[in-house]
Amino acid sequence: MTGTGPVLGRALRVLGAFDARHPALTLSELARRADLPVSTVHRMARDLLDWGALERGDDGRYRVGLRLWEIGCLAPRGQGLRERALPFLEDLSQVTRENVQLAVREGAELVFIERIAGSGAVPVLTRVGGRFALTATGVGLALLAHAPPEVQERVLAGPLPRFTELTVTDADEVRRMLAHVRTRGYAVSDRQVTMDALSVAAPVHGEGGAVVAAVSLVVRHGTTTAQALAPLVCTSARAISRAVTTSYG
C-alpha cells in the first residue's frame, strides 16, 4: 500500500487512462490522466510493458498492448457470443447493405462487441469495444427495457446524455419508450444519436429467456421506416438466440 493506493488499483488506473480519444499517451499524459505521480507511472509502465499490457511506439508514446486483447477475447459475453452471432449478423448485413451492430449491457452502459459497416451506409459513432449510453441507441433501449428494475431506475435517475436536438432526456418519456419495446419486441432510435441515422434493435435471449445482447440495423434517416426494418432485425435476433441457447444448452 502507498498513498496512491494498492498496486493493482494503480495499474488499472494507468490502463484506464486510455480511451477512444486517447489511444496513445506520453508518460506525462499517462500520469496526468491516471492522477498518479510520473515516477510511479514510469515504474508501473515498465512492468506493464514487460507483461504485454502496454506497448511503446517509436514516437515514445504508450499504447494498449496486444496481450490485453488476447485476454479480452476470452470473455464469454464478448468473443463467444460474437462468434455465435456473426453468421447471422453477416447475413443481415448482406441482405440490407446497412450497418449491423451487436451489443451487451455492462452495468449502466452498453458495450459494442461487433459492428459490420455496410457499403455506403450512414456513418455511425460506434466502434467495437466502445461504450455508449443505454438511453439513446436502439441496442441500448432494447437492453435497458429488459434490464433489472434497479438498473433501469439508476440509469433514469440521470442525467441522461443529449446527442442531438431529438435525443429524449426526459425520464418519464424514456420509461414509456421502454414499455413500447417490451410490448412490440423491438426498439427504435430515430435521430437520437446523429441527425441522419435511424436505428432499429431487438433483444437476444439466452438461457431461461434472459436478455444477453441486442442486435440492430442503423440506416440513413428517410430511406425507410422502422416498421420495414423491424421484421429483419427481429428475425436475426431470434436466430442468434437459438444459436446461443443451443450452444450453451
Score class of each variant (00 low, 15 high):
residue 101 Q to R: 09
residue 157 A to S: 15
residue 113 I to N: 02
residue 92 L to D: 09
residue 78 G to A: 13
residue 102 L to S: 09
residue 169 T to L: 13
residue 92 L to E: 09
residue 100 V to F: 04
residue 88 F to C: 14
residue 182 R to C: 11
residue 144 L to M: 11
residue 128 V to H: 07
residue 142 A to F: 06
residue 169 T to Y: 06
residue 111 V to H: 03
residue 135 T to C: 04
residue 114 E to F: 04
residue 106 E to G: 07
residue 118 G to Y: 01
residue 111 V to S: 09
residue 92 L to F: 07
residue 148 P to D: 12
residue 106 E to M: 07
residue 86 L to D: 12
residue 100 V to T: 08
residue 94 Q to A: 15
residue 79 Q to S: 15
residue 178 L to K: 11
residue 115 R to E: 14
residue 180 H to A: 15
residue 122 V to P: 03
residue 109 E to M: 12
residue 104 V to G: 08
residue 133 A to P: 04
residue 122 V to D: 01
residue 160 L to W: 00
residue 130 G to R: 05
residue 123 P to A: 05
residue 100 V to N: 08
residue 125 L to N: 08
residue 157 A to M: 08
residue 99 N to S: 10
residue 97 R to D: 13
residue 121 A to R: 00
residue 140 G to D: 05
residue 105 R to C: 08
residue 96 T to A: 10
residue 142 A to N: 09
residue 164 T to I: 07
residue 102 L to K: 09
residue 156 L to K: 04
residue 152 Q to Y: 01
residue 118 G to E: 02
residue 161 P to Q: 08
residue 118 G to I: 03
residue 162 R to K: 10
residue 91 D to C: 12
residue 174 V to P: 04
residue 99 N to I: 13
residue 156 L to I: 04
residue 125 L to V: 14
residue 91 D to A: 15
residue 126 T to G: 12
residue 113 I to S: 04
residue 169 T to E: 14
residue 160 L to E: 02
residue 146 H to W: 11
residue 77 R to M: 15
residue 143 L to M: 08
residue 81 L to H: 09
residue 76 P to K: 07
residue 87 P to I: 03
residue 119 S to M: 06
residue 157 A to K: 05
residue 93 S to Q: 15
residue 179 A to N: 12
residue 151 V to G: 00
residue 89 L to R: 04
residue 169 T to M: 13
residue 82 R to H: 13
residue 173 E to F: 10
residue 100 V to R: 01
residue 175 R to S: 09
residue 128 V to M: 10
residue 150 E to F: 03
residue 138 G to I: 03
residue 165 E to G: 13
residue 135 T to E: 10
residue 160 L to H: 01
